[in-house]
Lab assay of single mutants.
Amino acid sequence: MIVFVRFNSSHGFPVEVDSDTSIFQLKEVVAKRQGVPADQLRVIFAGKELRNDWTVQNCDLDQQSIVHIVQRPWRKGQEMNATGGDDPRNAAGGCEREPQSLTRVDLSSSVLPGDSVGLAVILHTDSRKDSPPAGSPAGRSIYNSFYVYCKGPCQRVQPGKLRVQCSTCRQATLTLTQGPSCWDDVLIPNRMSGECQSPHCPGTSAEFFFKCGAHPTSDKETSVALHLIATNSRNITCITCTDVRSPVLVFQCNSRHVICLDCFHLYCVTRLNDRQFVHDPQLGYSLPCVAGCPNSLIKELHHFRILGEEQYNRYQQYGAEECVLQMGGVLCPRPGCGAGLLPEPDQRKVTCEGGNGLGCGFAFCRECKEAYHEGECSAVFEASGTTTQAYRVDERAAEQARWEAASKETIKKTTKPCPRCHVPVEKNGGCMHMKCPQPQCRLEWCWNCGCEWNRVCMGDHWFDV
């Protein structure tokens, strides 16, 4: 396979590697080409510095992935760790964990309700045991953590790749202090920090972006993250068709209702045909949960890209028209025109101005929308079919299609509260000796007794199943 190397943020060049090629071997190839010592090179990928003893497969490097290699003399205490030698983080029983690669970060837990604080980093599902597709590297999971809308060759929703760059020099040479644990960490600028490894760059702020994971991409090709779309790892039924499908869209209502993408497309087109989208002054033209839940309008309007190009163009047109109407304007009634106009409040005669090729020149009556006339309008008909009709959803289907309910059931079956801080902690095999993952707590306690870890627990039921 081919990976592209950008040395000291210059133009990239291809390097041929195998899945079992080590990072140090990659350094040696680059060092020979650039005429520099291999031990002064640092390989940066997806916000993480890659260790010498890791392989291309370990690092989730795919065909035509772009890695950054910078030349920086080692500072005291760094060289041993980078070589894969006596790194205290690798000691058996050590409590410190390697910062998780962005290629394996899962933010789907952050669609849980606000009262489930902490689960994004504490609760991990076991539903990723799908067998890898044919042709994928051994052991590589097909679980997708992110979804994007690819405006490039795909023109559809695709699995996405999370990447990070330095907000100062805009190069992907920043190593994160810690990985993101929720969508806010990724979507809110300057929320996460790190250290830029580019020479002479003092940058410390992280800037995240997404790429389409279905095809090789260049540095400049980015895609918009659709953070309401998630892999259906909890096997929730769709609120409309009641099938279990994946991926799904999880509405931001209190129940976190789930809808499959085909039904979401149908829901949007139906509402669009009836012009029953909601115009929100802050958000724009949007839709609420299909069950009509309060405070559930979709905030990231790129989710409506699921409509496809033709329907999305209609959505944008109707949204612009609705904006004009909300501002007190009118639409030209001549067939084939429909231009938005903003006449004076007491102006009865409205002319669709033909300047700049935008208007048709038609003069019409503001009251009856017919060709302009003197005197009273002959008839004014009330528009028919403008009443909002509820999208029919079966109550039982709505009850079963809740992301929140599956989460709470998982928590109930696989977790116990920490005796000190009461945060839910998952036990997935292993011994009875637990350690609270909350940095402010870190209590060592017994899963069996529910009390602080002691010699009695150690001698009596340390390794009970």
Rank of each mutant, 00 (worst) to 15 (best):
V5C: 13
V5T: 03
N8Y: 02
S9T: 05
S10C: 10
F13V: 05
P14F: 03
P14S: 04
P14D: 02
V15A: 02
D20F: 05
D20K: 08
T21M: 15
T21R: 03
I23M: 07
I23W: 00
K27D: 01
K27A: 03
V30T: 03
K32L: 15
K32N: 11
A38S: 09
D39V: 03
L41H: 01
R42T: 12
I44C: 06
F45M: 05
G47W: 01
K48V: 04
W54A: 13
W54M: 13
D60H: 13
L61V: 06
Q63W: 07
Q63Y: 09
S65C: 08
I66C: 11
V70P: 00
V70Q: 03
Q71I: 04
R72S: 14
P73C: 06
P73Q: 11
P73K: 06
W74E: 14
R75L: 10
T83A: 12
G84C: 12
D87K: 11
R89N: 14
N90Q: 12
A92Q: 13
Q100A: 12
L102P: 12
R104A: 12
R104D: 13
L107D: 15
L107H: 14
S110E: 13
L112N: 13
D115Y: 05
S116L: 04
V117M: 12
V121W: 14
I122W: 11
L123N: 13
T125E: 14
P133L: 11
P133R: 11
A134T: 10
S136K: 12
G139I: 13
S141A: 08
S141Y: 07
I142N: 14
N144Y: 07
S145A: 13
S145G: 05
F146R: 01
C150H: 00
K151L: 11
Q155N: 13
R156Q: 14
R156I: 06
V157Q: 04
P159N: 06
K161S: 09
K161N: 09
L162A: 04
R163A: 15
V164T: 07
V164M: 13
S167C: 06
R170K: 15
L174P: 05
T177I: 10
Q178C: 07
Q178H: 11
P180N: 00
D184T: 06
I188H: 09
I188E: 10
N190H: 12
S193N: 10
G194I: 07
S198G: 08
H200E: 15
H200S: 14
C201L: 00
C201I: 01
C201R: 00
A206Q: 00
F208S: 02
F208G: 02
F209P: 02
F210E: 00
K211R: 09
G213L: 05
A214R: 07
H215I: 00
H215S: 02
H215A: 02
E221K: 07
E221V: 07
T222Y: 09
A225R: 02
H227D: 13
I229G: 00
A230P: 02
C238H: 01
I239E: 00
T240V: 15
V244W: 03
V244D: 03
R245D: 04
P247E: 05
V248Q: 02
V248K: 02
L249A: 02
F251D: 01
R256D: 02
C263R: 00
Y267H: 05
C268I: 05
V269Y: 03
H279T: 06
P281F: 06
P281G: 10
P281H: 08
G284P: 01
G284K: 03
Y285R: 02
L287Q: 00
P288Q: 07
V290N: 03
G292L: 06
C293F: 00
C293T: 01
N295Y: 05
S296E: 01
E300V: 05
H303V: 09
I306S: 05
I306K: 00
L307R: 00
Q311V: 05
Y312Q: 03
R314S: 03
G319R: 08
G319P: 10
A320M: 12
L325H: 04
L325M: 07
L325V: 07
L325Q: 05
G328W: 02
L331V: 05
C332H: 03
C332W: 02
P333I: 03
R334S: 08
R334G: 06
P335G: 06
P335D: 05
C337Y: 02
A339C: 08
G340V: 04
L341Q: 12
L342K: 08
P343M: 08
R348K: 12
R348L: 08
K349L: 09
K349A: 07
N356L: 07
G357A: 12
G357W: 12
G357F: 15
C360G: 03
C360V: 02
A363L: 12
A363M: 14
R366C: 07
K369W: 06
E370I: 04
E374Q: 08
E376R: 11
A379R: 09
A379C: 07
F381K: 07
E382Y: 11
G385N: 09
A390S: 14
A390R: 12
Y391R: 05
Y391Q: 06
Y391H: 07
Y391D: 05
R392V: 09
R396C: 10
A398G: 07
A398C: 11
Q400T: 13
T410M: 11
T414W: 11
T415Q: 09
T415I: 11
P417F: 08
C418Y: 01
V425H: 07
E426Y: 08
N428D: 15
N428K: 15
C431R: 06
M432H: 06
C436W: 00
Q438M: 04
P439Y: 07
C441P: 00
W447M: 06
W447H: 05
C449Q: 01
G450F: 04
C451S: 15
V456C: 15
G459M: 15
G459T: 15
D460A: 15
F463K: 00
D464Y: 15
